[in-house]
């Protein structure tokens, strides 16, 4: 299965990435290679096989819903590129 430059550009947008023309060429080629390698999986009939999303059969891990000590706001914000009055600052989203 091949992948086009346009598709790569679309996926890049979904992933919030952008590429130069040169990168786009290279990624298109490498992704095509990798996708053609994984085609191999189609040799197997899996129509009757349940998928595994998790290696252990642990389900419904509950805990008490109680208030516990957490990281103070200042510390939680300490790595934010921009912050103000205890909030994260983002570029304006409403025009």
């Amino acid at each position: 299965m091949s992948i086009t430059k346009e598709e790569v550009q679309h996926v890049a947008h979904l992933a919030r990435l952008e590429f130069s023309e040169e990168e786009l060429e290279r990624f298109t080629e490498q992704l095509a290679q990798i996708l053609s390698y994984v085609e191999k999986l189609n040799e197997l009939d899996t129509s009757q096989v349940e998928p595994t999303y998790h290696a252990l059969k642990l389900t419904n891990i509950f805990r008490e819903d109680e208030v516990k000590e957490s990281i103070p706001t200042e510390e939680a914000l300490s790595n934010a590129p921009q912050r103000e009055n205890g909030f994260f600052v983002v570029p304006k989203v409403i025009k």
Binding site: V11, A12, L14, L17, I34, T46, V49, E50, P51
Partner: peptide, 29 residues
Amino acid sequence: KRRIMIGTYALSAGYYDAYYKKASQVRTL
């Protein structure tokens, strides 16, 4: 970036069953 791209592609609309689900079924095997 390469892995984010492969992963995003494998999970994107129309490809999920063919790639991600298929791989997860092979994982069972």
